[in-house]
Write a protein that binds this DNA or RNA. Structure first.
Lengths: 211, 211
DNA sequence: ATCAAATCAATACGATCGTACCGATCAGGT
DNA sequence: ACCTGATCGGTACGATCGTATTGATTTGAT
């Protein structure tokens, strides 16, 4: 009875599920107690798992944190790409932009959790050049995407001397990121943030069409 | 010779200087190695000071971190209020707004250091409701100030149903915060950030005047 | 001159940390 | 049937952690 059920050992024993369960424990600790409270033992305890198992999947603490960082980054990226697939490029770029920027603002409690963890890892990455590069690339990718959609909306070719519209894209991205931050601290509500982002996006879109 | 010079012990022995020297060591560690690397011993070592002295000024680690949090917050606030004093309310609100938002974007290397530390403590505060309230209040104060200056620029009274201009203030504040974040990660240069913020602020000011 | 308080340096203690290691167990290929 | 490797639990080790404590030293008030 106290013996583990068969199937928990050996080669193909639900590797990915166990792995992500451990990472989820990391997220929970980061979200509720802060990144500096993450230790192998606490993660194991939170995941209801032995220390040895955590070590097996993530030999060092740095491996664990890097994997967690990668996981949150992918989670955030998949949120955006999900929207890009459902509202495919058949739709008009304005709709896609609306959906995309909305995904960058935490609305539900689950969103808040994800964004808090993302901010924690972003701060963690500030002192790790290797991780910081990934954040930088992620933002550059997002900005490029916004610029592309702006061009598609205006009917112009997104080729040379796109600095003007990249500037616009950076503005929209920065605005959204800042709104997400203000939402996380509780300075504004998610509804206010959504409204401000949407209003500004509409203005940018209208201005580009009117030219 | 190896004895400490007189004046280092006893009652009024440069209390504040020693205190802030310790806090500065905290900032350096947070900036270069991350917040989770802060320990009493490392702080003492970095400040070239004994562990006992750190303990004397900050009995517990939480006291130390809270004091450091307060210090960075005050440092950031003094940057803004400094500008509000030099360019007093005699100047036109547009100039004050320009200067104010500029101070919220890191330009020099010292700025980068300060902003990295601020972001670290902001993240640290996310899981501490008591500290998070201070951040929230700080942002609300900034937003209120921006809204007031916007009103003063437009010549309207900043009284009832100010939700519209508070929205504009939130937009400008969020944009600036987001630009600061993008600057910290290296996605954009401080010059780009300054340009985007300035352009948007000018547009908001012009729009308000034209109405 | 005396004394209480301020100001440290030094040390010690228990807890927790990251990690290495060992042995048991199980799956899948041979 | 056997064996290799994946998978895990348990434990131990050295380092570091936060903090308490003790005693020395100095200052400023009396």
């Amino acid at each position: 009875m106290e013996r583990p059920r068969p199937g928990v050992r050996g080669r193909g024993a639900a590797h990915d599920e166990r792995r992500s369960a451990i990472l989820d424990a990391v997220f929970t600790i980061v979200d509720t107690e802060g990144a500096e409270q993450v230790s192998i033992r606490r993660v194991a305890e939170r995941a209801r798992v032995s220390v040895g198992r955590v070590q097996h999947y993530f030999p060092t603490k740095d491996d664990l944190l890097t994997a967690a960082f990668t996981a949150v980054n992918d989670l955030g990226a998949s949120r955006v790409h999900e929207n890009l697939r459902t509202a495919d490029n058949a739709d008009d770029p304005a709709t896609v932009l609306h959906a995309m920027l909305s995904e960058l603002i935490p609305a539900t409690d689950d969103d808040r959790r994800l964004f808090r963890v993302m901010q924690a890892f972003e701060t963690h990455a500030l002192t790790r050049p290797h991780l910081n590069d990934r954040i930088k690339r992620r933002y550059e990718e997002l900005a490029g995407l916004v610029a592309l959609l702006l061009h598609r909306n205006a009917g112009t070719r997104p080729d040379s001397t796109a600095s003007a519209s990249l500037s616009r894209a950076h503005e929209l991205l920065a605005l959204t990121i800042g709104l997400a931050g203000l939402t996380l601290t509780g300075s504004i509500t998610p509804q206010q943030a959504q409204h401000i982002a949407r209003t500004r996006l509409d203005a940018v879109l209208a201005e580009a069409s009117g030219r």
